[in-house]
Nucleic acid binder design. Structure first.
Length: 517
RNA sequence: GAAUCGGUAGCUCAGCUGGUAGAGCAACGGCCUUUUAAGCCGUGGGUCGAGGGUUCGAACCCCUCCCGAUUCACCA
């Protein structure tokens, strides 16, 4: 970053429309109208009225008598002014409802000088009135009182949705520029209501998972984000500095090692929804900060964890869609239990015809070359196998699938397989061609763990930036004894992408990372 | 980091082999008391992403840079 500070926000020159709207603020105050009052008594949302409209509608709107009164608040999204009466669409958090406002209902001054002259699309207003159906059978609130709640001084995009002859919805002037949608998510949410729906679903995913873990009696905990030693995953960290301690700290890349300390401490099950940070590239699938849930359960192994995950994700699909089947792009993905469980070597053999079990590093290297996979001499056995899997198998796994039993070289925190030499008890859940979870029977043999860390340290010394550091405190913890434990990390962003049929991680993050404007 | 495509009014977009910018919606002034992309008449609005170059003349051609999307590479 240079001298010219990109954090500063010099006020840009304003458009004609902004100038006009600012002037309206002065005019409103001259009319003794507060453009920014303090509260409003909202009795109904648009959705509550529309869901039960028969109980609200009066058939004699010109003589409403004791028809039910409603007050709603929201944003003016469209306007149709016809002289002495007008229609406008009011959008609140639950949807939209049409409002009909007449000069002779709200008063000449209020209608002519305030409503007609001062209201812009985007303004937040409150309406009190009663409900009727128009000639074209649209349920509409007839306003008896109108109030400004917040005057907008910046024009918002004005998309228009209409049904064509075939009954299809066509949107004109939709707000589609992705850069602006991400940078100004607030505008995106105002004019693209399905965006709000995506984020509601994301929260529903988290809540469904949290509820299930709570029902099982697992404890939701919080562990440090600022860590003196980062670990628990293979990734490059962000570094920051603590002034008072005069030491560098890392933003966590995973919370695994802290959660396992808590299992040592005596909890049977702990979980944390955690923002993790990895100093790597951005893409459709990667944001520098992302969310995982990690869960550790004592006295269980990875077989149990597969059962648990199936059940949890099936619940999520049902909660969001009322079905185990979810449409993602061109695929129908079915999360109904049980999911196939395929050992990694078997998955590779099924796809390529090569059985890697018992093969030497050199033999696997040659197989990779024969499959036209980009490999080099520096790659270890585990890395080579991972490359082969990634290139030949992973993207083909559309339906949820557990890939089990990984090479020990790639898994320094997982326990050796109880029967298969050279492998660990680890699985990844793959769905729509992408990993959505990673889990193992946790390594609780402290001597073995120390050796694995030392191997990582050798890799780090050889220049592997993603190799783990030896975490002496973590070793000390498991030297005190950690019970047999199953652990899992589930990527919430990836899961949300699948469950909401989003093709970019940016669509499931409110504020994806962007370069400064 | 590389390649491709893109950045023109508040929004969505035109703009030909170079002749200093247009449309619809939005805004502004009128008319209009059941409209719904409301309609009709009229008006204004632009650092054409930024900077340099070529040219009599650049939104357009050339160079550099900024921002974004997509694909690829690393990664969850």
């Amino acid at each position: 970053m240079t001298e010219n500070n990109s954090m500063s926000n010099a006020e840009p020159s304003i458009s004609e429309q902004q100038a006009i709207r600012k002037e309206k603020l002065n005019q409103l105050r001259e009319l003794n109208v507060n453009p920014y009052p303090y509260s409003y008594d909202v009795t109904h949302t648009s959705a509550e009225i529309l869901a039960d409209e028969d109980s609200y509608i009066t058939t004699t709107p010109d003589e409403p008598g004791d028809a039910k009164r409603v007050s709603v608040a929201g944003r003016v999204m469209t306007r149709r002014i016809m002289g002495k009466a007008s229609f406008f669409t009011l959008q609140d958090s639950k949807g939209t409802i049409q409002v009909y406002i007449r000069r002779d209902d709200v008063g000449v001054e209020e209608y002519n000088k305030v409503f007609k002259k001062m209201v812009d699309i985007g303004d937040i207003v409150g309406i009190k009135g009663y409900v009727f159906k128009t000639g074209t059978k649209e349920t509409t609130i007839r306003a008896e009182e109108f109030e400004f709640l917040s005057k907008t001084i910046r024009p918002i995009p004005t998309p228009k949705e209409v049904e064509n002859e075939d009954g299809e919805k066509v949107t004109y002037d939709a707000f589609t520029d992705k850069e602006q949608r991400y940078r100004q998510r607030y505008v995106d949410m105002i004019v693209n209501p399905d965006v709000r729906d995506t984020f509601r679903k994301r929260t529903q995913i988290v809540q469904t998972m949290r509820n299930m873990m709570n029902e099982r009696g697992y404890l939701e905990v919080e562990t440090p984000i600022l860590q003196p030693i980062y670990g628990g995953a293979a990734a490059k960290p962000f570094v920051t500095h603590h002034n008072a301690l005069d030491m560098d700290l890392y933003l966590r890349i995973a919370n695994e090692l802290y959660l396992k300390r808590l299992i040592v401490g005596g909890f049977d099950g702990v979980y944390e929804f955690s923002k993790d940070f990895r100093n790597e590239g951005l893409s459709r699938f990667h944001n520098p900060e992302f969310t995982q849930v990690e869960l550790y359960v004592a006295y269980k192994d990875y077989n149990w964890m597969m059962d648990f995950m199936e059940e949890m994700i099936e619940k999520v699909a049902l909660a969001l869609h009322g079905s185990t089947t979810v449409t993602v792009g061109e695929n129908e993905i079915n999360f109904e239990r049980p999911w196939p469980r395929i050992p990694m070597y078997e998955a590779i053999e099924n796809e390529t015809g090569h059985d890697l079990s018992g093969k030497t590093t050199e033999e696997i290297f040659d197989i990779a070359k024969s499959l036209h996979i980009d490999v080099d001499e520096s790659m270890g056995k585990g890395k080579l196998i991972d490359e082969i899997f990634g290139e030949t198998v992973e993207h083909k796994l559309i339906q949820p699938t557990f890939i089990t039993d990984y090479p020990i070289e790639m898994s320094p925190l997982a326990k050796k397989h109880r029967t298969k030499e050279g492998l660990v008890e680890r699985f990844e859940a793959v769905c729509n061609g992408k990993e959505i979870a990673n889990a193992f029977t946790e390594l609780n043999d402290p001597v073995d763990q120390r050796e694995r860390f030392e191997e990582q340290a050798r890799l780090k010394a050889d220049g592997d930036e993603e190799a783990m550091a030896v975490d002496e405190d973590f070793l000390r913890a498991i030297e005190y004894g950690m019970p047999p434990t199953a652990g899992i990390g589930i990527g919430i962003d990836r899961l949300a992408m699948i469950m909401t049929n989003s093709d970019s991680i940016r669509d499931v993050l409110f504020f994806p990372q962007m370069r400064p404007e």
